[in-house]
Amino acid sequence: MILLERLAPELLTAAPLLVMRHVSKRYGPVVALEDVSATVWPGEVLGIVGESGSGKSTLLRMMNLEDTPDAGDYTLALPEVPGNLFALDRFARRQLCARRIGIVYQNPHQGLLMGHSSSGNVAERLLMAGERRFATLRARARDALDVSEFPLNRMDDPPRLLSGGMQQRVQLAKAIALEPALLLLDEPTTGLDVSVQALVLDTLKRLQRDRAITMVIVSHDLGVIRTMADRVMVMRRGRVVEEGLVDQVFQDPQHPYTQELVHAKL
């Protein structure tokens, strides 16, 4: 079936925050990403959906500069890093990620020091950026946890003593403590009870509304994507098979795989 080709943006004058072009990555014989391009505009939420092994998490990790692709480039519209971010060395990447990119992982062990205090986990982010006043560290950690709707009477408990939902809130507080330009969410609610999942999504939604943080959220759960995202990319076997406004992709999916996915889940 022939579809009308979509035009380049005419009305939106803002420059995109994130541009990733023609990114490909293989791990041995496994194709993780094949010619993937993505664009994210300031203040919007891009959802990436697909089954396990579709490459969606790999793509997110590329956005967090945790890995370098075989081909392709990646830019963020930030004054301090004008060029291709994949060309940065490890040190520069670390600086950039610490200051400008926040990430929430599915597994809190990946993002948190489980034995240290929750507020300390948040404070570490600020310490990495050079904050050296104890009172400021304390106040900003408290604020970030509060915004993430973490119960402040438990702010000095270590994450290993907390429930899964609260661990995700600590991760979120850590991710937003420095007010990042980009917030990456890798299956942030997978593995949580349904009721807890709804509360965490609600927090994310509020945060997005109040602060207009640009987000990229990866999930295999269409419900999560529909709740959170403005636009969605559907990935399969390392490729983007469909991309569009969330309501359009879910109500009028074009690709056979997307149709299968939508009909299976709805």
Binding site: R6, L7, P9, E10, L11, L12, W41, D230, L245, Q248
Partner: peptide
């Protein structure tokens, strides 16, 4: 729209959102 016209059938997703 205020400053011209655009084909909604083919407009970019971000323009539609706007």
């Amino acid at each position: 729209h205020g400053a011209g016209r655009i084909d909604l059938a083919r407009a970019a997703d971000v323009d539609i959102a706007l």
